[in-house]
Design a protein around this nucleic acid. Structure first.
Lengths: 100, 100
DNA sequence: ACAGTATATCGGAAAATACCGATATACCGA
DNA sequence: TCGGTATATCGGTATTTTCCGATATACTGT
């Protein structure tokens, strides 16, 4: 993983925490993407609508979450799909209970 | 506990993370306080010396950590001792692996 | 009551973050 | 090749955070 401070900073924002929560259940939270599937996660546009912020802001938030390791990005055509990396959460959970 | 964003913000600073780490082993990290004991933790002055920041800054950092639940303060005479609240770390660890 | 010490709080300058709109890049279909 | 769509990046303003020095508060011994 990366620097702990950067990881906690990534989680220090209401919208970013919500994004992570929404991505736990893509089918429920992003029905608008049903026809395209959820294999690689959810695309930026869907997240933007749900977040109610501008495209540029959501895009940046996603790259912050990606740098911290919480999500993985997959480019498919003109779309970038983001999905949670569950291992990162387990890892952080362990870091907190064992090393912090 | 409190709002998750505030908790992660409290952990988004190098010095504050170091303080939490130092408080895991007061005897080792704060030998200057040996004669006064470590029952209630470590006093602000000792933490200030170790952190190398001003008294006001360290005092504020400690209250940030306290508001987030990571440390408990005990006033004894003119000293305020701070010690870790291990339960807060376990709780946060669970929150991350189960809810985040 | 007073001087000394420990900590908390206040006010502020500099740096970082939260967001935005505009623009650039990448891909697609015609 | 060109127009349309999805995303990333850039430049900027408002807010927040970092860290400081000065001051206020609280306690202690004389």
């Amino acid at each position: 993983m990366m620097n702990h401070v950067e990881i906690f900073k990534a989680l220090s924002n209401k919208t970013r925490l919500e994004i992570l929560e929404w991505l736990k259940e893509p089918e429920t939270n992003f029905p608008g993407q049903k026809e395209y599937g959820y294999v690689h996660g959810v695309c930026v546009g869907q997240l933007q609508i749900k977040a109610g912020l501008t495209q540029s802001t959501v895009s940046e938030y996603l790259s912050i979450l990606q740098r911290a390791g919480f999500v993985q990005a997959t480019r498919v055509g003109q779309w970038t799909y983001y999905k949670r990396d569950e291992a990162a959460f387990e890892k952080l959970s362990k870091v907190i209970s064992e090393f912090l």
